[in-house]
Simulated scan of single mutants.
Amino acid sequence: METREIELFSKPGAKLQIQTHAGLPSQDGSLPTLVVFLNGLMSPQSTWNPAVDILLSRLTSHPSILTYDRYSQGDSDPDPYDPPDTVYGHDALAVIADLHELITQVCATILHLPPPGPNLRMVFVANSIGCPLSRLYAAAQPGSVSGFIFLDSMMANTDFVSLFPNPDAPGFDPDSLPEDISVDDIRHTRQEYHRMFRPSVPNQEHLDRRNLRELLPDAEKPRLPRGPDGQSPLLTVVGHDWEVFATQSLEGQMAIPKPVTHAYVNSAWHRYNQGLCRLTSKEEGPREPIIAAGCGHFIQKDDPELVAREIINMLHKLNRRLS
């Protein structure tokens, strides 16, 4: 992988840190392939390096690869269009517009590939908020994405606090809670999720998440558009290990009791992932998410071997479409 800085033509003076790998020419007449990795809010592009290293060591015919830090993430500069007088900056639609410009520019000037569209086979590998970003990109650029790997997608359609009952709401019945969960547990958890995860909480990246629920209100729709070959894209959905995530939530700064995480977060997240599995046809993806044993939310950090394996599996499936 080659590391370099690049300036988008539309945002001169603001550098994005990227890593690229130029793939080998196809020997079978298939479209050239570009694998694009999309980070979460708290996971810069460097978190993909172990999985990319494994991927390149296992394949004899390499795809082209792009990883990058979004504006104000990792080693990239701030977005020059962000207003200076607010904690909120660009939203998800601005991110995908930048992403399309970046991919187009990298393909033309560095990787020497066709632009996104009918002559390029593109696969998105995404973690956390990178997953809804990839969905929005595909909707904005139909016919450009051949495959998606969602690694513990962010639940884009919730404010997170609403995952839990409100003990201060009129008519709340304490006896409705599971036996191993107290009212104090619920109140503490709601406060922590309100402090850390609600969409209006600012982040270092200045990515404004407040309209994400309106942009993607449903896990299972809209369907992912067809790819460059005119076929439904391939889809792999991977979720975290429930017990690992519950342990991390307990031992982290939020100190969420494990029974609360299991009852209200893990269960809701699994249903969301099941909805994501319905974004494409049954023939192009399983109906149930894969559970990444031993992994918390950042699956690419906890099990890069799994990530590389799923990418290789998807590339092989795409190649079989040619036969």
Rank of each mutant, 00 (worst) to 15 (best):
E251Y: 07
P84S: 15
C107P: 01
S128G: 15
S232F: 11
T158K: 03
L315S: 02
V183C: 05
W242P: 10
S61Y: 01
T247C: 07
P222S: 15
M196V: 14
D218Y: 15
I256L: 07
A97Q: 11
P63T: 05
I96K: 00
Y88S: 11
T33P: 07
L55C: 01
G23P: 08
G239C: 09
R198T: 13
I311H: 06
L38T: 02
R309T: 11
G296C: 04
A138T: 09
T3D: 09
D28P: 00
M196P: 04
K221L: 12
P80R: 04
A126K: 06
A139G: 11
G239L: 07
H262M: 15
A92D: 06
P114C: 14
N127W: 01
D229R: 13
F124M: 11
L322Y: 11
R287I: 11
I54W: 05
H112I: 12
P233C: 15
H100L: 07
P170T: 02
R198E: 10
H297K: 05
A169W: 04
G89W: 02
R209T: 03
L41R: 06
G117L: 14
T20E: 07
E214R: 02
K301I: 15
Y193K: 00
I18K: 00
K301P: 07
M122A: 11
L322W: 11
R320V: 13
N273Y: 12
H297W: 10
H194P: 05
D98E: 13
S267Q: 14
D28E: 12
V201G: 08
I149E: 01
F245Y: 13
I103W: 03
L136N: 03
S10T: 08
P132M: 08
Q248E: 11
M42V: 13
F150R: 05
L318W: 03
G252T: 05
G252V: 01
R135V: 00
L8I: 09
V35L: 10
Y81L: 13
V35T: 03
L322N: 12
R135W: 05
L250H: 03
Q204G: 13
L8C: 06
D184Q: 08
A293Y: 13
L216E: 03
F164V: 08
D302R: 04
L99F: 02
L56S: 06
